[in-house]
Nucleic acid binder design. Structure first.
Lengths: 340, 340
DNA sequence: ATGAAAGCGCTAACAG
DNA sequence: CTGTTAGCGCTTTCAT
């Protein structure tokens, strides 16, 4: 560790007191210009590096935030994580990454450990709706922002960043109808998740407004894991009146569906259109390139981090958390070649 | 923050001294059984939570490690990151994620910040070969492990986890030759990277041992970004004697190549086999599913973390770093449907 | 077996 | 404008 010069060393070297060095370095209080120069020199000469631990212990702030995701391997998270980190870094914050698999025990253990480390706040991309141990964080005074997964009741009570899932699914379904599709299936996601409920509602509403009948047989419900959509797709295509479009509630589902369709010898989009949701990077690389609803993941990560930092600074100043805000991000319909 | 009980509070409550509480909690020194129980009770009652900052300041250890990757969006990193984190967590360590884009300034800034935070060690998945500011870390006494990117000269001097790239590419090329392919092209990666040089060498050696001529026209060299392989593939297929197989030095390149082939109206693998390298999760989902050399990314992350922890513990005990070890991981040829 | 006290490195009153 | 001093919460000799 070679270098362990501390304020005292610098002070001696510069021939001033410790507190003068501290002041000179933090630039808060005024310090004689000449003195400041001597201090700067001493800093160079001693190869001084501040000790963040000591500072944090004193200040009760670590400039570190905790980012919880279910699993970084899930394609939607890397860009979010990147957005959070880039933004945090620009403000001098460091981010601790926590994969939880949405396992409550893991989440709780992480939260406990993060408190122990005096982390400044949490960005949580997990938690079906409101897991109480997550939401409790805010009551305990911790800055907290929820990304994408939340419940209706949480709006206004917590900082949230999300898209308008109802609206996005509504627009997507209308688009499919506009292209002449009449039997539009929905690959529904895990129904406990509020965001999938919303997308389902959007789908239903769009069907209605497009004058299309709702057909329960056309809503493919995930069994265990998204691979189940392989068989669900085959089953659907075996219907007397098979779908002529499938709206997948996430891109990975769309990939599985395209696979099933391909194995069935069906052409996309001639025989059936496939529309995804998310626009993960791979969406443009599959064959045919997948039309999809793009969520601005990277931007969402940035906004989440900024939202958290805002809370942190506000709390620093006022000792209390600011009012919650709901950041609703815009989605984008990206038409590629899996729809016509 | 509600709860800020500290050792003193617990001590008072239990009617013992601070040091006794500390001892009782750390279980190092012996403490009267009865006393220990009283302390435990007091801990419950006061809702005590240790302050990791204070402990770290005292101990010079933070139980936190720094994980540097070029970009988490790159498909190979999420599983590595996950492996590192899972392993670290099991040992009570926390991981700070740093995306650097391999930008030297960013790397340096991060390193500086991490030192400031008294991080216990670094896992670096970046740095073309030996970036001196990274390698210097070990000389400064920091536990360090390099994942996948290193130079020949680094072996034995640093902890490294990697695969045998020469061997993997050799085997892959031989496999292609065994399936009857005679014009095997290589989609070469950025040539400054040692691992791509190795794969190139393996390719050449396999050609030779398979009695196939080396043809410079068949080595596709990346121009700027992997998208350049779209045109490179078209060019190659326009050759008088076009390739009947393309060995891509990474899966993403293979995806681009498959795309180009598809647009050319060529069939995979009937007209040309495509073999990838990495086995990113998407490899099995494209059409046709991609045959590829699987790197055990998750396991590599686990091994990297374990390697780092080993260094950290060793250093704790002996005050010095242990001898460097090179962890060479096994790759796996996964035959799917893009080769025959 | 337990307590007292020093000190990790830093910031922020408080004095001057 | 600068120095002195008191902690932040914890571990660890050194006594007892």
């Amino acid at each position: 560790m070679s270098n362990t010069a501390n304020l005292k060393d610098v002070a001696e070297r510069a021939g001033v007191s410790i507190s003068t060095v501290s002041r000179a370095l933090n630039g808060k209080s005024y310090v004689n210009e000449e003195t400041r120069r001597r201090v700067q020199e001493a800093v160079q000469e001693t190869n001084y590096r501040p000790n963040a631990l000591a500072k944090s212990l004193k200040m009760g702030r670590t400039n570190t935030i905790c980012l919880m995701v279910p699993a970084i391997e899930n394609l939607m998270f890397p860009p979010i994580v990147r957005g959070v980190e880039d933004t945090a870094r620009k403000s001098g914050f460091t981010v601790v990454l926590c994969n939880t698999d949405e396992d409550e025990a893991v989440e709780k253990a992480y939260i406990e450990k993060m408190k122990t480390h005096w982390i400044d706040g949490f960005v949580v991309c997990s938690a079906y709706g409101s897991a109480s141990h997550i939401l409790a964080l805010r009551d305990e005074g911790f800055p907290l922002v929820l990304v994408n997964r939340y419940q209706e009741a949480d709006v206004g009570r917590f900082d949230i960043v999300s898209v308008d899932n109802f609206r996005a699914a509504y627009d997507a379904t209308c688009y499919l109808a506009r292209t002449g599709r009449r039997r539009i299936a929905l690959a529904h996601g895990r129904e406990e998740l509020y965001l999938y409920q919303e997308r389902y509602r959007g789908y239903c509403a769009a069907l209605k407004d497009s004058g299309l009948p709702y057909d329960e047989e056309l809503v493919l419900r995930e069994l265990d894991g998204i691979d189940s959509f392989y068989q669900l797709t085959r089953d659907a295509m075996a219907l007397p009146q098979p779908p002529d479009a499938i709206f997948a509630s996430s891109d990975p589902k769309a990939f599985v569906i395209m696979h099933a369709l391909h194995d069935l010898g069906l052409r996309i989009p001639q025989d059936v259109s496939v529309l995804g949701f998310d626009n993960v990077p791979m969406a443009s690389m599959v064959e045919p390139p997948l039309s999809t609803i793009a969520q601005p993941f990277y931007a969402m990560g940035c906004v989440a981090a900024r939202s958290l930092l805002r809370q942190i600074f506000y709390k620093d100043k006022n000792g209390t958390l600011p009012a919650a805000v709901h950041n609703v991000m815009e989605v984008d319909l990206i038409v590629r070649r899996s729809t016509k």
